[in-house]
Amino acid sequence: MKRYFIFLLAVFLGCLLIHPPTWSQDEEDYPQEPIIFTKPVKAVIFDHKVHVEDNGLSCDSCHDDPFEMEAGSTQEKPDFNMKALYDGQYCGACHDGDTAFASNTQCARCHIGVLGMKRILGIKEEVHH
């Protein structure tokens, strides 16, 4: 029984080596993959890379206000829409035409649409004739 337990522990530790859990990440790390919002409309992209590397934002620029840490949690809020953005909430905190380009301009810069989402997720459109 004891030997069995030690074996399990070894397997568990081995797994940790191969795939370190998220809590061991450096605080400066941020999600490398872009976040795709699908509510209330499909689909809007948010890329941490662009905001952190190109524009020099730090974690606390946006977390936990206006965005909670959990990726994609904001889209569950009922007021996550363009009107809220125009009122300076969520993305609109910076995208006000002053700090960053205004929320009511360049729609398709963040709205990658269903086509953009499928491309990122690698979904091929079936062709019918």
Partner: peptide
């Protein structure tokens, strides 16, 4: 220029 391809 307003289209966002939400496909609604």
């Amino acid at each position: 220029d307003r289209c966002i391809d939400c496909e609604r």
